[in-house]
């Protein structure tokens, strides 16, 4: 059974379309990274999953329960770190945790939870005096109450320092090993790349890609970057011409003896052979694997182009 299943979910706020027919499946036990620039509709999707906002069209289930029919049963098994939340300034960390423990009918120890997120020494202080990062840790601890089957984390690393971000990743892995499905949204690719099994990219309310991290890189691999340094500059032009003749190559630029080649990831040997055949000697070469940032940019640009064509 899928942990999260969206089927043609559309959401309109007045004349603004926030989500447009989103279909998405998150398998049980997965760590799913939900990527997209700000304003793409990530939070709207999460708000719909939690029944904070009602979809204009389409349907969705979480842990097998319809989001609108049985939101309470979903929330009983889900831990949430919402976006744009606020803590209760006048209540202590312990009071926050006790409230959630009581609400979820769990029997955890507030001190242990605080320990896990590293705010044990501040547990009896009022949460209004916490730093943003500590509040984030507190709300994360609240999300962990009751060993939820699903964790929904909306931009979980916002406001965290590098230590906090590392802790967040560790907790995500720990919870996943315990058996929880983790769904988290981010616009910071490094965070997603580090822990996710699967990534979905949302842009302008549409899911434009869903794949494993490796698969995504592969898919956008039109542009593995290959840097070839020639032994001398005499044959540069001939080498460029030879490389341009290859089908797998998309771009070639020359700068002195250095050629920068954008090509399919499996075209390396073909490029090197072409250079040798043109009469130049390869002094050095290196490949640069595309970062997810570039993958992301490639996807979103591609999407924009298609959109422009449709509009035209």
């Amino acid at each position: 059974m899928a942990a999260i299943e969206l089927d043609g979910v559309t959401k309109q706020f007045g004349s603004l379309t926030a989500l447009q027919g989103v279909d998405l499946t998150v398998e049980e036990g997965e760590i799913f990274g939900f990527l997209g620039p700000n304003g793409a509709g990530k939070s709207t999707t999460i708000n719909i999953l939690l029944d904070f906002v009602r979809a204009t069209d389409g349907s969705a289930t979480v842990l097998g329960h319809d989001i609108h029919e049985e939101p309470k049963r979903i929330r009983a098994r889900t831990g949430v770190l919402p976006e744009g939340y606020d803590v209760y300034d006048r209540l202590t960390g312990r009071q926050h945790l006790s409230f959630v423990i009581e609400s979820k009918d769990a029997d955890e120890d507030a001190d242990e939870l605080a320990e896990r997120v590293g705010i044990a020494d501040a547990i009896d202080r009022k949460a209004g005096g916490y730093s943003k990062g500590m509040q984030q840790r507190l709300v994360l601890a609240m999300a962990l109450v009751g060993e939820p089957d699903l964790l929904i984390l909306d931009e979980p690393t916002t406001g965290l320092d590098p230590n906090g971000a590392r802790l967040m990743r560790e907790l995500i892995r720990e919870e996943n090993e315990r058996g929880a499905t983790v769904f988290f949204s981010s616009h910071i690719l490094g965070q997603v790349e580090a822990v996710c099994d699967t990534v979905g990219i949302l842009q302008d309310g549409r899911l434009i890609a869903k794949d494993s991290v490796a698969g995504l890189r592969e898919a956008a691999a039109g542009d593995t970057v290959l840097r070839v340094t020639l032994a001398d500059g005499d044959g540069t032009d001939a080498a460029v011409a030879a490389i341009e003749g290859l089908d797998e190559v998309s771009t070639v630029t020359a700068d002195g003896t250095t050629l920068t080649v954008g090509c399919d990831s499996d075209a390396k040997m073909a490029v090197l052979n072409a250079v040798e055949e043109s009469g130049s000697e390869v002094a050095n070469f290196e490949t640069e694997e595309t970062s997810l940032d570039e993958v992301f940019a490639a996807y979103t640009e591609q999407q924009e182009q298609e959109q422009a064509e449709v509009d035209a």
């Binding site: 939101p71 049963r73 929330r75 831990g79 949430v80 744009g84 606020d86 959630v100 979820k104």
Partner: peptide, 12 residues
């Protein structure tokens, strides 16, 4: 925004 915390708990 604290309402989001309240309503992510099992309450209608």
């Amino acid at each position: 925004g604290s309402l989001k915390i309240l309503l992510s708990l099992p309450y209608t």
